[in-house]
Simulated scan of single mutants.
Amino acid sequence: MVIEVVRIGQRLVRDDRVTTHVALVSRAFGAETIFMTEVNPEIKDTLGKINETWGGNFTVEFIENWKPIIKKKKEDGFKIVHLSMYGEKINDIQDKIRGRENLLIVVGAEKVPREIYELADYNVGIGSQPHSEISALAILLDRIQEGQQFEKEFLGAKRKIIPTKTGKNVQVKETRD
Rank of each mutant, 00 (worst) to 15 (best):
K168D: 04
K89H: 11
N40T: 03
I93W: 13
I134R: 05
G9I: 01
I93L: 13
S128M: 11
R11N: 11
S132T: 15
V5W: 01
T59V: 14
V107T: 04
I116E: 00
P130Q: 14
D76W: 03
K96M: 12
I161K: 11
N169I: 14
D95F: 12
R11V: 11
T20Y: 03
V112N: 01
I144R: 05
E38H: 09
I116C: 00
E174M: 13
I161P: 02
Q145T: 13
E101I: 04
K79L: 15
V60C: 07
L104Q: 01
E61W: 05
A109I: 04
K165Q: 13
E38M: 08
R14F: 13
K152D: 02
N65Q: 10
G9F: 00
G30R: 09
Q10C: 04
T19H: 00
V170C: 07
D92E: 14
V22A: 03
L140Y: 14
E42G: 05
D16R: 06
G167I: 12
I161T: 14
V60M: 07
G167A: 13
I93E: 09
Q10K: 06
A109H: 03
N102M: 03
Y86P: 00
S132C: 06
I162F: 12
I50D: 12
T20N: 01
D177I: 09
S128H: 08
R7L: 01
R176K: 15
P130H: 13
T19R: 01
V39F: 00
L140A: 12
A109D: 01
E75P: 01
V170G: 08
K74G: 02
K160N: 10
V107R: 00
S135I: 13
E32S: 14
H82F: 14
N65S: 10
E75V: 07
A138C: 08
G87M: 13
E61R: 15
D15P: 02
K73G: 01
N57F: 11
D15G: 06
A120F: 03
E38S: 08
T46S: 07
R114V: 02
R7A: 02
N51E: 13
T33D: 06
E110I: 07
A23H: 03
T37F: 03
K71N: 08
I97S: 11
Q148F: 08
F58K: 06
R14W: 12
H82E: 05
D121P: 02
K168C: 08
L119Y: 07
G167Y: 14
I162A: 09
S26A: 15
T37K: 03
I162S: 11
T166S: 09
D95N: 14
V5F: 05
E42V: 10
G127N: 11
L137H: 06
N65A: 05
V5P: 00
T166P: 02
S84H: 09
